[in-house]
Computed example of a mutant assay.
Amino acid sequence: MSLFADAFAWLLDPANWEGPGGIGVLLLQHLLITFGAVAIACGIGIPLGMLVGHTGRGREVAVALSGGLRALPSLGVLTLVALWVGIGVAGPAVALIVLAVPSVLAGTYSAIESVDRRTVDAARGMGMTERQIILGVETPIGLPTLIGGVRSAVLQVVATATLAAYVGAGGLGGILFLGLKTGDYTLMLAASILVIALALVLDGAFALLQRIVVPAGVRATRSGTLRDRTTRRSASMGQPAIEGNN
């Protein structure tokens, strides 16, 4: 327990949060690396996922691509790119984008596919173009699932972004690798606690966002369905109806 106490004492020391190598700067670097990689992954995965989900074409290829990219070792990709382009942000960025694209892609085409085809047919019958259907019907309804894919990508990237410090790109991994180099387990544990806490905060924020973006009509439909189910369940359990005496 003394190791945990030392780690928390180190984290709570204001001196460790100050300066260019302080926790505050490293935390900001970690967030910039994470959201930069996820933003680029969204630019790749969301349009492709929308196309696959709407047309149904290339789904097998998308599934295979997602699985294949997930199987790539992040440290191996990071090292390979770093050897190619040199030390800096480029290596971690490419590795993290490769890691994030599968979750974003899978979440997007699952979101579009999950929309009831009768709703899509109704929109098409009203004269909406395919673009209008994707952006005005399928995306709003499937937005919680789409954000779930982005949420998964963020959690994967925020944990793996600790490797960015391995090639000198900064982030909270700098504390971890410093502790590893000097044999200081307090630093290693403190860095792990920081990354875990950051992941939990981001996960909670995206979970809240998923609840907020549910369209009002879908929320009302779910509520009505729940009431209908409750009524049918009560009737099936044999609860007597209240009737007036004649």
Rank of each mutant, 00 (worst) to 15 (best):
W84G: 00
G58W: 02
I193Q: 02
G125V: 07
L51I: 15
G168S: 13
L202C: 08
H54C: 05
A95L: 04
A37V: 10
T108L: 02
D184P: 01
G170T: 06
L226F: 13
S114N: 05
L143A: 13
T145R: 09
I141E: 09
T225N: 15
L180S: 05
G53D: 01
R211I: 06
R227H: 12
A7L: 05
G19T: 10
R232S: 15
E60H: 01
L194G: 00
G136V: 13
Q132N: 08
R118T: 06
L99Q: 01
R57H: 09
R227F: 09
H54K: 02
R57S: 03
R229P: 00
S192I: 05
A164C: 03
L209A: 12
V98K: 03
G43V: 14
K181Q: 15
I134D: 11
G204Y: 06
Q132I: 01
P140R: 06
L65M: 11
A123C: 06
L143V: 08
G43M: 11
M126Q: 14
A190V: 09
I175Q: 04
M188E: 09
A169E: 12
L163G: 11
L80M: 14
R118G: 08
G43F: 14
L146Y: 12
L163A: 11
D228K: 09
A7Y: 03
S103H: 11
G45R: 07
L96P: 05
V158M: 10
G36A: 13
G21K: 05
L194C: 06
M1I: 15
G173L: 12
R57E: 00
I141P: 02
G56R: 00
G56Y: 05
W17R: 01
N16Q: 15
R233D: 15
A100D: 10
T230F: 10
E243C: 06
A161Y: 12
F35M: 04
G171P: 09
G67D: 07
I133H: 02
V214Y: 05
L209T: 10
E113F: 02
T221A: 12
V115N: 01
G21V: 03
V158A: 10
G168F: 12
G24C: 02
Y109G: 00
S103P: 04
A190F: 00
P14L: 10
G170H: 11
T55C: 07
L75V: 15
L65V: 13
S74K: 09
A205Y: 08
I46H: 04
M1H: 13
G171K: 13
R229W: 13
V52A: 02
A122G: 04
T186N: 02
L51R: 14
E138Q: 15
A37H: 13
S152C: 12
T145V: 15
R117P: 03
L187Y: 06
A37L: 08
K181G: 11
V154F: 12
V213Q: 12
A190E: 09
G21E: 11
S114R: 03
T129Q: 07
D13M: 07
A95P: 07
R117T: 12
G238K: 08
V63L: 13
G19A: 04
R151T: 10
A111W: 06
G43W: 04
L51F: 06
G67C: 09
G91I: 02
A123F: 10
A37N: 06
V137Q: 07
L187S: 09
D6M: 05
D13I: 14
